[in-house]
Write a protein that binds this DNA or RNA. Structure first.
Lengths: 355, 355
DNA sequence: CTGAAAGCGCTTACAG
DNA sequence: CTGAAAGCGCTTACAG
């Protein structure tokens, strides 16, 4: 393993020592001098513009190659008054499959448009999110996609005013006129809960995420309304919150299932919570029925009934949205795109109550 | 939801119309003019440097605030001769939990050093990887982390020569003198296979990734040597390749298990393959023992014995490595860091052969 | 087809 | 504590 493997035999002698050792990185001016042309001509040749004699072009490219010239993107962008072709994505935590699937979709779309994707995690921490948004806006990214952990976004208005398109993913913009892509949280939770009711359950637990999140609120509403619709008035008896990860969800679920009067079914507010609930059920009350919001990799294999949707597609759409906002500077009316969900019965949601 | 929610009452009158409408984005020169100071003084105030009278500083900051001035990072970096504080990560596919956990670790480390992370997927396509590396190098990123899909990296020497630190993750650099962080693939596969042998298996299948990958080769070697060690000479009878995702792995595994003389146990080459094998076993041969390389979220719940390690930690370490390389321009000797694995018995690997 | 001049928005010496 | 001048590396008009 040596560094010189790919150097051609003449590489060492082809370069005038003086050129290279001097300035750290070779500049267009150097290339122009070597090729015996003006700066402008060198620029034209390097950028593949028209109106350069073939011989001249070759001379320039050869010189550039010899010194290993690479155009300085910063200088080029600065001069052209253009911002960096970067879009940024802020999510809670990339190790959550929901976010990584969203990120995948975003990345596909962004890159297919020749731009780059920068990512950062807020860890569901509002202060961290604010700092990230501020940073990206200062950097003048072309657009910003946020799975926000804030419950009010009016403070972000100044960033929009500065011309940075903001698109909210999964959790809608609140107190701010901006594009949002959200799931049909209410209807999804309503249908999942109704599904359990139709299978004879009356004591149905709800395991939710952080209460400040819009998604949590809407999903809970869907759950509660489904209960009321079935004549079940007490919609808070088996409700537990703040189960954001698998472990906390498992603990909360086990505690609820070991109650004097446990629920016979659980509706789980998201994929991580579903997995935690799954473990809890396996551990302490195997007959409990379960429907979860969000799909996850092994739902099929494990026979878990879920309220299903496609996060990667959501990422793609959101990215497209931000690119369009960035392209047309116009103040188009902002939209909220609601993505439908679909209940997929796989067994766990069809278990009958034993009580 | 209106845009004006956060504007203070005097906001509309505080700004001289002329300043804002003119140039698109406010510049330092404008701020300096408004504050009645020189460019340099404005720069000092904005950047929080010493040697500015408090009154002057306040005047400048007020002016900056009024016009919504944001420093132009590109111009600043260009002048200071500094490259963008960006590190890039190229993986196969972010929706693969292994990669997303690696990405999480990388992101934590990179951001804790005040830099940003750009990500891109090669989709395991060598041409795509080459194009991405070229692009990032031209952009002069501070460092490049690659989970490479190439089987030879000598062509990347020119990029190193250009001063961009390359660190290889999961799959080592081949034909190139560069830092690599790899798992102990051989030992991990050896121990996993030996575990199955110790539980009485002699007919053990191997389900592998793309044959061109180093990781696949080493894991296969570990498998084959464990068999030989146990006096099993035929190490190719139940070997299947190119099972890169869950679905293809499932198909290949089912086909193998429906053979006239099926294996009684399977060693699966990575997390996706393990999941595919798990499904195949559940579908067609429930008594087959299984050990998989890589952990996955539900391995515990499902009782799957795995050769375990921590991808997020690997990401963190790799990022640290690239940051160090980028900080010290020195040509330090490159290293290969080997990360140990640990076999975690959870049931599937302890099933005895029934034949 | 080719080039000299000016300037993108900022910061680095160097003076006061 | 403050400022006038020069320049980072490139590209945009404008001429030839």
């Amino acid at each position: 393993m040596t560094n010189s493997t790919v150097l051609s035999p003449e590489a060492d002698t082809a370069v005038e020592p003086g050129y290279l050792q001097e300035g750290r990185t070779p500049t267009l001016a150097l290339v122009a001098k070597m090729a015996g042309v003006s700066l402008k001509t060198a620029s034209r040749a390097i950028n593949g513009e028209k109106h350069v004699a073939e011989a001249t072009r070759e001379r320039v490219l050869k010189a550039a190659d010899e010194v290993g010239f690479r155009i300085n993107a910063m200088a080029s962008l600065l001069k052209r008054g253009v911002t960096t072709p970067v879009v940024s994505l802020i999510t809670g935590d990339l190790s959550n499959p929901f976010y990584s699937m969203v990120a995948k979709g975003v990345e596909q779309q962004i890159r297919s448009h020749g731009m780059q994707l920068t990512i950062a995690s807020s860890d569901e921490n509002p202060a961290a999110e604010r700092a990230l948004v501020e940073e990206f806006v200062n950097q003048r990214v072309r657009g910003l996609l946020i799975v926000s952990t804030l419950d009010d976004h009016s403070e972000y208005a100044e960033y929009q005013a500065r011309g940075v398109p903001l698109v909210f993913l999964d959790r809608p913009a609140v107190g701010l006129d901006a594009d949002s892509l959200v799931l049909d949280n209410y209807a999804g939770a309503y249908s999942g809960t109704t599904h359990l009711i139709e299978h004879g359950h009356r004591r149905i637990g709800y395991l939710g995420d952080y209460p400040r999140l819009q998604t949590r609120k809407l999903r809970y509403d869907g759950y509660a309304d489904a209960l009321k619709q079935a004549g079940i008035e007490d919609t808070t008896r088996w409700v537990r919150d703040s189960a954001h990860d698998v472990e906390s969800a498992r603990l909360v679920a086990e505690e609820m299932l070991l109650d004097d009067e446990p629920p016979t079914a659980i509706f789980a507010g998201n994929n991580q919570i579903t997995i935690g609930a799954l473990q809890a059920i396996a551990n302490v009350a195997p007959n409990t029925a379960l429907v979860g919001f969000d799909d996850f990799a092994l739902a099929e294999l494990l026979g878990v009934t879920t309220v299903s949707h496609d996060p990667t597609d959501m990422g793609r759409r959101a990215a497209l949205q931000v690119l369009e906002r960035s392209a047309v500077r116009q103040e188009a009316i902002s939209q909220e795109l609601v993505i439908k969900t679909r209940l997929i019965p796989r067994g766990s949601g069809e278990r009958l109550p034993i009580a």
